[in-house]
């Protein structure tokens, strides 16, 4: 039995946007095991991104508790969360969010500089097959290449957890598959616990577990006995 890396208990998150209160998470409880590859599916506003943000130490729940290993993340301060992100979490975004004034190599170096035990930026770029593009600026890279730089940037610190908010959402299928392949590689070779949000239901086939979200809660959990490789995916 592998150990539990995340334990969420009764997480609630309410946003006040303007004059409306939105319940993004409602009393959500969940365990994630170390090394697991989890895919989160669900319509917009169902709470996936909110949960991911809280797990990534980017946001705090309104109530409830979240444990990372034996640490209660919901109890640590701003500085503690920053250290948590710095040492344990890699994040990928729907729109890559590369720094446009830095090259691919430098975007990765941005993270390796502040991590305690990083790989070399070139090593991370090689993992996503981009070593040849190291000196290109984001504007000189295709969308898929940019997202792979974002993955390299996320994994370069050897994170314990890799979080992706729609990492293939802005990509065509061929490029998306290459990105998924890179993610599976990282997950299997480095044993990085990986949580991916997607609107693309076909990607669920590569996951160990699939969480279906609706109205700020998990409506269904599907465990895949047989997992597909990235090459086998189509959409």
């Amino acid at each position: 039995m592998t150990e539990t890396i995340f334990r969420a208990q009764s997480l609630t998150r309410t946003y006040l946007t303007g004059e409306v209160a939105v319940q993004a998470l409602r009393d959500l409880s969940l365990d994630i095991r170390t090394g697991e590859l989890v895919v989160m599916l669900g319509p917009s506003g169902s709470g996936k991104s909110t949960l991911l943000s809280i797990m990534g130490g980017l946001d705090r729940p309104t109530s409830g508790q979240l444990f990372f290993r034996n640490t209660e993340l919901t109890a640590v301060g701003e500085r503690g969360l920053t250290l948590y992100r710095r040492e344990h979490v890699g994040v990928m975004f729907l729109f890559y969010n590369l720094i446009s004034s830095l090259t691919a190599y430098e975007n990765v170096a941005l993270v390796t500089e502040i991590s305690p035990n990083p790989m070399q930026p070139d090593e991370a770029l090689a993992l996503v097959g981009l070593e040849a593009r190291r000196n290109h600026f984001p504007a000189q890279l295709s969308g898929g290449e940019q997202q792979r730089v974002a993955i390299a940037r996320a994994i370069a610190k050897r994170p314990v957890v890799l979080l992706g908010d729609g990492p293939t959402g802005a990509l065509d299928s061929k490029t998306g598959i290459r990105v998924i392949d890179a993610l599976i590689n990282v997950n299997t070779q480095l044993g990085t616990t990986t949580l991916i949000i997607t609107h693309n239901a076909s990607i669920q086939a590569v996951a160990a577990r699939v969480l279906f979200f609706a109205d700020g809660a998990i409506s269904r959990i599907q465990v895949n006995e047989r997992r597909l490789t990235a090459e086998a995916l189509t959409w």
Binding site: G56, L58, E78, R79, T82, L83, R85, R86, E87, V89, V91, N97, I99, L110, V111, I114, S115, R153, K157
Partner: peptide, 9 residues
């Protein structure tokens, strides 16, 4: 972004 990457304030 810099905050998400773990940079201190």
């Amino acid at each position: 972004l810099l905050k998400a990457l773990g940079y201190f304030n």
